[in-house]
Every structure is written in C-alpha cells, then in structure tokens.
Design a protein around this nucleic acid. Structure first.
Lengths: 336, 336
DNA sequence: TTGTAGGCGTTATCAG
DNA sequence: CTGATAACGCCTACAA
C-alpha cells in the first residue's frame, strides 16, 4: 500500500542504506547504482516519510507562525512574505492564529512543540512576556513587532516612533494645529510607540498636549468609526486625524463621508502601515509604509539563519526597519 | 535533554506502556497509577513527540491548505475560517500558497505528502484537473471554489451564477440598460460562472448582448483600474459597472473618483464577495455576500468528516452555498 | 562503494 | 490492571 525505502531497495537490488545515500546525496554511490535507484524511486513514486525522517534527524523543515488573529489585510501580507521566503528555502508553514488570552497562546505554543524547527511570533500585546516562558527550550525564534525587555530574543520591528513622529510633523507643517489621534490597542507595544511619536511631534512643534485629542481604538475599522464620532463632537474641532493604523483610518474615512465632512478639505486623515488597499480608497490614504510582506520575509530569513546556526551561540540581534512616509491625498497634500 | 516517555515511565516506576495508556486514555489503568503518571509527566514537562506518534498511527492532526496566492482580504478570510474550525477540532494548519504554474502546484502537493491528514484545495484555475492526479492516493480532500468534471471530489462552492444573475438584475431594475462587466481571470471557473449569470440577466431582461461591455480583468485592484479606463471611453458610456470581485470594484471606484465621475449618480458600481472592507469604502460597496470565512469553516468541517470516515466509502458530495445580495450605496439604491 | 544493524519515541499486541 | 516487545520508516555509524 505505502511504498517505503525498503521497496525501493528491494526493487533496485541494493540495501536501504544505499537508497538513503542516493536520495540524500550523502556518502559515495556508484554512478550506475545511483541512476538505477533514482529511476526505481521515481517509478514507484516513492516519497520519504517526513515523520520517520523527523524522528531521526529531529528536524521538520517547518516553521511555525503565531499570530494574534487573521483579520484584515495586514496579517495576510505578513504571511505572504513569510511564505515566500520559507518556500524559497524549502520550508513549510504551520500557521496558528487567534490567541486572545494567555491560555490559548500557551496551548498553541505547546502544539508547535516538535512540529517546527523555529517560530515566528507576532504577539504585540505585552503579556507575551510571561507566555514565552512556555516555549520549548532552544527553539529558534524571532519576535516580530514586539521586543521583550526581559529576554533578549532576536526581534524585528519597525520604527513606530519615528514613523508616527514624521507623519504627525508632516500634518503640522501643513498647517494643522489640532491633530487628533486614534490610538491602537491599549497594551500593544506598537500602539504605544506610535502614540509616543505623535506626542513628541506635537511637543517639538510647541503645540499643547490635549488628552481629549487622543481617542481610544483597537486597530479595527469599527474602532475608527466610533472614534470619529467623538472627534466630530470636539470643540473646537480638530482639522486632522492620525489613525494608528490604516484599518482605523479607513473606518474613519467611511464615517466622515457619511457625516458629509469633506476629506481632506475639512478634515485631513492619515494612517499607518500602508496596507495594499490604502492607495485605492477614496481619497487615497496618506500613511506610513511598513513594507508588510518584506517584514515577513526578513523575519523568515532571520529565523532560518537562527535555525542553521543553532547552538553556535550567536547573540540575538534586534533589527529595526525604517518606515517611509507615503503622502497621498487624504491629508491634503498637493502632490500625489 | 529531551524528555521522553521512558523518562516518565522510569520516574513513575511503571512501564512505558502504562504511561502511554494514561496519556491517551486507552486501556484501563489503576487510578492511583494514573494520577502519579500524570503528575510526573507534568513535572517533567513531558510532551509526546508528534513525529513518533505519526510514524505509528499514521495520522498527523494537521490539515493542509493549498491556495493560489495570499493577496488581498479574500484568502485571509478563508484561512481565518479554516483556522477556527481546525483549531476547534485540535487540528493544525499547514499552509502553502502561490502556485502559479503547474509544476509549483505539483511540488506543493508532494510536500504535503505524509504531513497532513487531509487537504483543502482552492485552485480555481481549471488546470487543477490534471494536477490532482499527483495527489497522494486516498488522501481526503475538499475542493473549494472549483469542481472537477472528471473526478467526483467532495467540493464546496458558492452559486456564482445565481449571485451574478441577481446582482445584474438588480442593476437593470434600477434603470441601468447598459451594464458593463469587469471579468475575472480567464481560466477561472468562478469568473466564468459570474459572467454567465451576468449574461443571463441581460438576456432575460431582453437587453442586447454587447461584447464591448465585457472588459477583461484578473481579480486585482489594478485590473479594476485599467478596466475603467476602457469603460469610460465607451460610446455610449454605460451607466453601471459590475466587477467580478470586490477588489476590482474598489480599483474601479478609485479611478472613477480620479476621473471625476460621481458614484453612484453618474456610474453605479457593484462587486462580488463582500470582503470585510467593502462596507467601509466610499461609497459603501454593493456586492454579493459570500460569507468567506464561513466558506472556510464549512470546508474544514467537510474535510474533517471525510478524514474520520476515511475508508467507509462515503460518496463525495458537492455543496453549493447560496450567496446573498448586499445592497449598499455604490449602486445608487435608496436603502442602505 | 556497499551492506548490516541499532535506534529515534510512540503505540499496540500480546502475555502475564 | 500491567509489562515486554514488536513494529512504524528512516538515517548513520561501523564493517566489509
């Protein structure tokens, strides 16, 4: 029923060891023997059992991806990048998402044990801290969009502070003296950094810091919706909105349009991430480009390096990617 | 270094067989023994090797997902649905995407061999036909968004014809006598069905069939962009556009806005899929709701059923989901 | 260059 | 109820 290495060996008139050597290019094999083995293998449609191979080599050729959820274009872009890089190196992808609370994450972590050679973890919420204690020892790992103070894991982040600072400054330079911010999730590191950048830009421009201008949000379109209602009720009304991500900016645009507030004439709007759709909405969204799929690719490369160097005691490095301002029309800039 | 079942057995003063029985609830074990074993296992942080288990049970607790690509919100929604259903049943997800040509798909198929208990395949392009011949024998599988005439695989599709028909009819009923269609990819089954539904609605309304109104597309925003340029050049200009998916509709809206064509006053626009963002763009997009993540969930349930019944020779069934019209403002309807 | 045989960590089949 | 022990399919010294 299932064709094993023994079948190939028997059929080719050699030992299993030889077949193994041929198929893995390990050890020397006579050329004729090799050709014959290969041919038989193909003929029999033999394909080695990954499980058996894993059992003995303790390697799975698989990398695990832990995501908080799969909602929206952001995470699918990340996965796309990861998948590309992984595929290039012959690695497979074990994806696990929706880890709302701690116990779910612990379960997921446990589930990865023995199934992957390394892990890409995107858990921006700070309780990652404690959770990573449940992670299998010596498993190579790369943190994306989060750094842990307590443990020096290799990590990949973008410079959220810088991006937010520059975007806010851009708005200010365009004459907006009251810029509202729709914040990201409360315990999210990236959200915190973006808020910090926003505040710093205001301060450096010697604009007053008004807590009323900082509206709560959670990175969903619906949150953008709700936030706008609050903002429009503000007195005096701000003339610009900086949403901590594009999804919220899009939600905001939607409500502004309903309310008959013209963008950008009466209200400038900007987001963060530059998800692919940002350029297609109306008006095209000014935002901060993260290079989302590139982020996934870089993370994967970093992880693969970590996997191949496992044990050679490299110091884990933290890379910070520089984001780029993308000025489109939603902020009222002249140039597209 | 790595704690195995033997370690637990030794520490608990029993045989590995007993430990195995305890951990799998197979066979009878004295209560005291069981408790002790469990405790030791927890203490030692023992976790069974999936590979070893797979080797003997020939089951992986993993389902494979084959996608054409990961671009846009559609596929991430599908994965979300799959992930939810799989997670509920304790299954893991091996994801593989970007299968442009045949050889890539064959590689991916081979890679899944021995790593998964079943496969969800979303390859709408019709050359799936030949490709499925490379698929491991007796591997449970569910086709999504595609049916193969030649092989009676279990499949899950939505009624693309019906959805397109009803949407087109709705546009006609609103007074549009010239409705342009932006078509999907050439060899895509769903695209074909949607086109068929569009044509049938025109015919039933006794409107002339004008090939010029059928513009080529490929399901990307950029294609929507390009198509609109063609449509605007048409003489006489149609008053409505039906894009074969939401992404193209969004691309179309973007260009219409650039061109100063008001939607829906001067041009009605509608899409297909109801991706989550459709309700948030301006104007909110009239479309056909597919229930994308539900599609993923259903597919997974179907597959899991197939896995557990494997060998009991069930006849593969084809389910067809009925889509639902979602009237929003982009088509000029009064009601939101 | 090739073959033999041990072992990877589990589960499952027998006896006790 | 419990314990040996034989698979599962493969890789890899070690011998020849």
């Amino acid at each position: 029923m299932k064709v094993t290495i023994r079948d190939v060996a028997r059929e080719a008139g050699v030992s299993v060891a030889t077949v193994s050597r041929v198929l893995n290019n390990s050890g020397p094999v006579h050329e004729l023997t090799r050709d014959r083995v290969r041919q038989i293998a193909r003929l029999l449609r033999y394909s080695p059992s990954p499980a058996a191979r894993t059992l003995i080599t303790s390697t799975t050729q698989t990398i695990g991806v832990l995501l908080p959820n799969l909602y929206g274009e952001f995470f699918s872009e990340v996965i796309r990048g990861i998948d590309q890089a992984a595929q290039r190196s012959g690695f497979h992808l074990l994806v696990s998402s929706s880890h709302a609370d701690r116990s779910e994450l612990e379960t997921a972590l446990r589930a990865m044990r023995g199934r992957v050679d390394g892990l890409i973890v995107m858990i921006p919420d700070i309780d990652a801290e404690a959770l990573l204690e449940n992670l299998p020892a010596r498993l190579p790992i790369v943190l994306v969009s989060a750094v842990l103070e307590s443990h020096p894991f290799p990590s990949l982040t973008i410079d959220n502070y810088e991006g937010a600072y520059r975007l806010t400054r851009h708005l200010i330079e365009r004459g907006h003296s009251a810029v509202a911010m729709i914040k990201g999730s409360e315990r999210n590191q990236e959200a915190g950094e973006r808020l910090r950048g926003y505040r710093a830009a205001l301060r450096d421009a010697e604009l007053p810091h008004d807590p009323k201008l900082e509206i709560a949000g959670d990175f969903t379109e619906a949150a953008g919706d709700r936030a706008v209602a609050e903002i429009l009720a503000l007195e005096p009304r701000p003339s610009a909105i900086f949403a901590a991500n594009d999804a919220m900016a899009i939600g905001a645009l939607s409500v502004l349009r309903e309310a008959g507030v013209r963008v950008p004439e009466e209200m400038a709007v900007a987001g963060f991430d530059d998800i692919p759709i940002a350029r297609y909405i109306s008006p095209p969204l000014t935002t901060v480009r993260v290079g989302i799929s590139a982020l996934g690719e870089r993370a994967t490369q970093k992880l693969l390096r970590g996997i191949s160097e496992a044990g050679s005691g490299q110091t884990p490095t933290s890379e910070v990617l520089r984001p780029e301002l993308v000025i489109r029309r939603s902020c009222g800039a002249r140039r597209v």
